[in-house]
């Protein structure tokens, strides 16, 4: 509770670091802050950094306004929209993108389930949906259909693959109807 703010000791201005560290798919990155070509500007979103600075183009940008889910990645275990987070505010975070699911050339079972159930057409929304699903299954390995619908409510699929997505997720969770 801020009632007892020590105004003498806490009212200085913060001292800013000149870089942040970000772990992406297990690999640490040290990213300088600034306006040079290879630096992270304060206005860069996480989605932008992942795609443009680090080359993880599996993460898609659809609406860029938190309203479609295409840019979803897992940050410290939670599915979040990388278009609505500033990279500079992610210091010390660990990010998992769609590229991090594959192990030794082997698709993740979730990815395989999406293919098996043709749970996409164009595939633009798929990386985001898979990342949300991954976080869901990590926290709750046997979700109900309703849990899945709730979790994926923020994802838009313009190809109307939603029904097949639910089938794929249920299958991956071993709860096929």
């Amino acid at each position: 509770m801020p009632t007892d703010i020590d105004w003498n000791s806490s009212t200085r201005e913060p001292i800013e670091k000149s870089y942040i560290t970000l772990t992406v798919n297990g690999e640490p990155h040290r990213l300088g802050i600034g306006s040079q070509q290879d630096e992270i500007a304060p206005s860069h979103t996480l989605a932008y950094t992942l795609r443009e600075s680090l080359g993880f183009t599996g993460t898609k940008i659809g609406c860029d306004h938190g309203a479609c889910g295409a840019c979803t990645v897992i940050m410290d275990g939670e599915a979040v929209q990388s278009c609505s987070i500033l990279t500079i505010e992610c210091d010390g975070k660990s990010i998992l993108t769609i590229e991090g699911l594959e192990v030794n050339g082997q698709l993740h079972p979730l990815q395989q389930a999406f293919i098996d159930h043709t749970a996409f057409q164009c595939g633009f929304c798929t990386p985001g949906i898979i990342m949300s699903t991954k976080a869901l299954l990590d926290a709750n390995p046997s979700p109900t259909e309703d849990d899945i619908k709730q979790e994926l409510a923020g994802h838009f699929c313009r190809c109307i693959s939603h029904y097949l997505v639910i089938k794929a997720v249920m299958a991956a969770a071993g709860r096929e109807r």
Partner: peptide
């Protein structure tokens, strides 16, 4: 997004001071 400066406030006091 256009450029802006960015600060990480570590206490409420710091944030108020900046504001």
């Amino acid at each position: 997004m256009r450029a802006f400066e960015h600060y990480n406030a570590k206490t409420t006091g710091e944030a108020v001071t900046l504001l």
